[in-house]
Amino acid sequence: MSRDRVLLPRPEGRGDDLTDLLEIAGYDVVRAPFVRIEPAPAADLAPALDRLAGGAYDLLVITSPATVRSLVAVGLRVPAGTEIVAVGGATARALHEAGLEVDLVAEGSGAALVEAVRRHRDAGGSSAPGPGSGPAPDPGAPAPRVLLPASSAAAPTVREGLEGAGMRVEQIDAYHPQHAPLPAQVERDLPGGGFDAIVLTSSMIARRAAQIGVHPRTAVVVIGRPTQEAAVDAGLRVDARAEHPDAPSLARAVHLALAPETTTPPPTSLDSPTGSTSRTSPTRPAAPKE
């Protein structure tokens, strides 16, 4: 009996933990990066990083391990007075491996990041407005200054959210995602029905999948709401969305999209306190495997 084939189009160096969880659960995982990461030139990053090293920012917000790698490669120096905010555990681990102490780890969504920063700053008595358990912000204090290095393809959601919380944000391009060349077999199998599921982990990957074509029998699993919106806008049907942007949640979402309602839950190796998922559409159309 053949195993369900799952396509993971994440960039190189990403998704090893998800691959392991899916293979443990019995899926046949095919990895084919749709995107390659090009770090921004050092000359483009130098002005902001020099200001950072000189203490010009109150917060450094890092949203991905790719950003960490790009900044470390050109000499990232963070002064003691600047707090570091990491989005997600993988980003926090990359910062730790680079020898940097993280002050706050936020969940992966833009809204969760903004709320976590607001609460953290309020608890410390900063000038950022918003609900918090600490002392009331000083209305006469200057707005916190934030450096936000990110992908050149990043949506303005985080920057706008932080600015809406009363912060002064400078967003710079840390890296540039580019389309990666694909094996001819993948370009044939994806529109031809050769995969049972595809896992989309960014808006750019979702748009490229739509350009290549996704067969109706292939379940589409997304990492979060922005990716879901991009996939739907590009004409894809989304079958399941991970509740949290982590490997256990994505693995459970794949199982939810592929397993009939009567099957048993995935193996306990996929279980996680944050590993809930949501089905976003009716079960995918039934079709014989090719």
Results as ranks from 00 to 15, higher is better:
residue 276 S to L: 15
residue 86 A to D: 05
residue 193 G to K: 01
residue 139 P to L: 12
residue 110 G to C: 01
residue 173 D to P: 03
residue 289 K to M: 11
residue 138 D to F: 02
residue 214 V to N: 00
residue 41 P to Y: 07
residue 268 T to H: 13
residue 39 P to D: 04
residue 232 V to P: 09
residue 148 L to W: 07
residue 46 A to K: 11
residue 169 V to Y: 00
residue 94 A to L: 06
residue 65 P to F: 05
residue 156 P to T: 11
residue 39 P to V: 06
residue 96 H to L: 10
residue 250 L to Q: 09
residue 257 A to H: 09
residue 39 P to T: 00
residue 167 M to N: 01
residue 107 E to I: 00
residue 34 F to R: 01
residue 182 L to E: 05
residue 279 R to A: 15
residue 51 R to C: 06
residue 225 R to L: 15
residue 243 E to D: 15
residue 280 T to E: 07
residue 26 G to V: 10
residue 140 G to P: 00
residue 168 R to W: 14
residue 38 E to D: 12
residue 222 V to S: 03
residue 252 R to P: 03
residue 43 A to N: 09
residue 177 P to Q: 06
residue 123 A to F: 13
residue 161 G to K: 03
residue 102 V to L: 10
residue 81 G to M: 01
residue 69 R to L: 07
residue 193 G to P: 04
residue 200 L to K: 07
residue 285 P to D: 09
residue 280 T to D: 12
residue 144 P to A: 04
residue 252 R to A: 11
residue 65 P to M: 07
residue 136 A to P: 03
residue 210 A to F: 12
residue 154 A to S: 10
residue 28 D to V: 05
residue 60 L to R: 00
residue 63 T to Q: 06
residue 102 V to R: 08
residue 273 P to W: 12
residue 285 P to Q: 13
residue 119 R to C: 11
residue 62 I to S: 01
residue 105 V to M: 10
residue 73 A to R: 10
residue 144 P to C: 04
residue 238 V to E: 01
residue 74 V to L: 04
residue 162 L to C: 02
residue 195 F to R: 04
residue 212 I to C: 08
residue 12 E to N: 09
residue 57 Y to N: 01
residue 277 T to W: 13
residue 219 A to I: 03
residue 136 A to F: 14
residue 209 A to V: 11
